[in-house]
Each structure stands twice: as structure tokens, then as C-alpha cells.
């Protein structure tokens, strides 16, 4: 073998890299985002704990221990079970309620994200794909809704809904299903479902705008023309070409949305217009500690830190996903 041939062979090996699927490429980029990976691990643990809530929590969701008010951390109850984080003002085990509350708060956020993204994807895709008057009507409506101050409107709507729970008819099966996810009775689930409706009812607006923008640029690409020349219908193109190709920004939007919904749900509950006690959520647990924080300053930290940690983790995950999915942002 001559020297040139050797060099040529080396060259080929040097410049040939292992072929990777797009998924692998994205995963590699995502894994490199250290904070996002830590956040993933943290959220995995949080989700595991809340999924296994009935097995981990020493007490039931609303078990009241008469006489054991504000017992210190780690004290043992009459029946030998441990109050890891003490009890609240009417003797309910804080640790158990915290876990159940996490399950409820996270379910509200997840349900809101799923509903709002689904509506947003379809409205946005239809608006962007068809254009014309459909686009005008839909987007004017979205702009109209977005130009109303959100928090005051959310407060009005939820204050009306929680006082008049039967205003919106909700099928019993939905209530039973949500109740099963959140481990509460269908009657208590109604409140949570209403909050999901309120949150998702506003959340889809920005997702629709995002989706519309993405579809507008996708629509002009050649593969759409190719699909059309093969006889694909509009519905087929939207379902099989638009939506899958627009998934990247939607996934990022969803993970940032999760952070937003966890905070929004907690904020509503904190202000007294969200899910009401006795159904625990991190927000209403935090709100309840306000009265006692002057004597027991550690109390707000117990429900407050999970809210902050989840919000931060979802934000980092969203950030990592954006870096991984959107190569244009990579420098």
C-alpha cells in the first residue's frame, strides 16, 4: 500500500461519522444540557412520589388527628404513624397532604397543558393552513382575548365558577375520571375540573398563535406540494404533515406551559379563587400558612418550595428542549 492510499483511507475514516437519527441528535443535544437533565431527574422523582402517593403517605388525604395541632416534625401520632412534617392547624398530617396536593396540582397542570395545546394545535393549524377569512376570524378572536387583562379576568371567572359550580354542566364520567387521577371524590373533582377549564380556556390562545406561525412557514415548503400532487386532501396534509412537523415548538411551549400552569393554579388558590380546602393543593396550603407564619416561620416553605422547584424545573426542561430541538438557536 502506498502512502497516498494510506492517507486516503485514514481520511475516509476521519470524516465518516456514525449516522444518527434525528431523534438521537436531539437526545444527544438535550442530554448535554446539564440543568435540564437535573430538572428531568427531579421531576421524575416528584412524579413518582405523587403517583405512589397512597403508598407513601402515612395518613389519608383528610384524616384529622384531634388534639395534635401543629405537632413538630417527625413526631409520632397516637397510632404509631409518623408526622414527618408535623400537622396543620386542625391536625392533618402535612407530609401526606403535601404529596396528595402535589398529585392534584400537577394533574391540574398536566390536564391544562394537554387540553390547551390540543385546542391550540388545531385552531392554529386550521387558521394558518386555510388562511383567508377563517384565519382572520380566528386570529382576531385570539387577539381580542389576549388584549383583556388576564389575571383580573381569571379571578372574575373563577370566582363566579367556584360559587356557582353547576353553571357549566360537566359529565359525571369526566368528574369520576379526574377524581380517580387526583384521588378525590367526583364531587370534589368538580372544582378542579373548573379550574382546568379556566386555565386551559386562556392557555390555548398563545399556543394557537405559535402553531399558526409555524404552519404558515411549513405550508410553503415543497413536501406539501409533493403531498398535494399525490392527491392528499387538506385534512390529510394537516394531520400527517403539518402537525407532526410543527411538534418541536409545541413541545417547548408545552413544557414552559407546565411551569406556567403550576404557578397559575397555585396563584389562584393562594388568592382564594382556586381549588378550595379541604382538597389540598400547594397553592391553598401555602395560603393557609400565612396566618401562622409569624409564630412558625418555616410553614410557608413546605408547600412553597415544591411550587418553586417544579416551576424552575419545567422552565429548565423547556430551555433544554428548545436548545435541542431548534438548531437555529445553537451558535
Amino acid at each position: 500500500m502506498t502512502a497516498t492510499a494510506q492517507i486516503q483511507k485514514l481520511d475516509v475514516e476521519a470524516i465518516t461519522i456514525e449516522e444518527r437519527s434525528p431523534f438521537q441528535v436531539v437526545m444527544r443535544r438535550f442530554v448535554r444540557h446539564r440543568l435540564a437533565m437535573i430538572s428531568m431527574a427531579v421531576m421524575l422523582i416528584v412524579f413518582l412520589i405523587t403517583i405512589l402517593a397512597p403508598f407513601i403517605a402515612p395518613y389519608e388525604i383528610d384524616a384529622v388527628n384531634v388534639g395534635d395541632y401543629f405537632v413538630p416534625f417527625g413526631s409520632v401520632g397516637e397510632d404509631g404513624r409518623v408526622h414527618y412534617l408535623g400537622t396543620d392547624n386542625i391536625g392533618r398530617d402535612t407530609f401526606s397532604r403535601l404529596i396528595y396536593a402535589g398529585r392534584i396540582s400537577l394533574s391540574v397542570a398536566l390536564l391544562s397543558v394537554i387540553i390547551s395545546e390540543t385546542i391550540g394545535i388545531f385552531i392554529g393549524a386550521i387558521s394558518g393552513f386555510y388562511g383567508g377569512w377563517v384565519d382572520s376570524v380566528l386570529m382576531r378572536f385570539v387577539e381580542f382575548m389576549l388584549s383583556i387583562p388576564t389575571l383580573p379576568l381569571l379571578l372574575i371567572i373563577s370566582s363566579m365558577l367556584i360559587r356557582n359550580e353547576n353553571l357549566i354542566p360537566i359529565p359525571e364520567s369526566v368528574l369520576a375520571f379526574v377524581g380517580k387521577i387526583m384521588l378525590v371524590s367526583p364531587r370534589d373533582a368538580r372544582n378542579a375540573v373548573l379550574i382546568v377549564i379556566v386555565l386551559a380556556g386562556f392557555g390555548w390562545l398563545s399556543s394557537a398563535q405559535l402553531m399558526r406561525g409555524t404552519v404558515l412557514s411549513l405550508r410553503e415548503q415543497t413536501f406539501v406540494e409533493a403531498a398535494r400532487s399525490l392527491g392528499a386532501s387538506n385534512v390529510w396534509i394537516i394531520l400527517k404533515h403539518m402537525i407532526p412537523n410543527a411538534m418541536a415548538p409545541i413541545i417547548v411551549d408545552a413544557s414552559l406551559g407546565l411551569a406556567g400552569y403550576v404557578v397559575a393554579e397555585a396563584a389562584l388558590a393562594f388568592l382564594g379563587f382556586g381549588i378550595q380546602d379541604p382538597v389540598p393543593t400547594w397553592g391553598n396550603m401555602l395560603s393557609a400558612t400565612q396566618t401562622y407564619m409569624f409564630d412558625k416561620p418555616w410553614l410557608p416553605l413546605i408547600p412553597g418550595l415544591p411550587i418553586f422547584i417544579c416551576s424552575l424545573a419545567f422552565n429548565y426542561i423547556g430551555d433544554g428542549l428548545r436548545d435541542a430541538l431548534d438548531p437555529r438557536l445553537k451558535l
Binding site: 412553597g304 424552575l312 430551555d319
Partner: peptide, 18 residues
């Protein structure tokens, strides 16, 4: 700044009072 924008204002306020 990233943490600050992820921080819920109600919890931040309570922390400050604490």
C-alpha cells in the same frame, strides 16, 4: 434572572416577609 422569572411572586413575597 432565570430563577427570578420562574419564581412565583406570591412565594417570593412570603419569603421576603420571612
Amino acid at each position: 434572572a432565570f430563577m427570578g422569572s420562574a419564581m412565583p411572586s406570591f412565594f417570593f413575597g412570603l419569603l421576603f416577609i420571612l
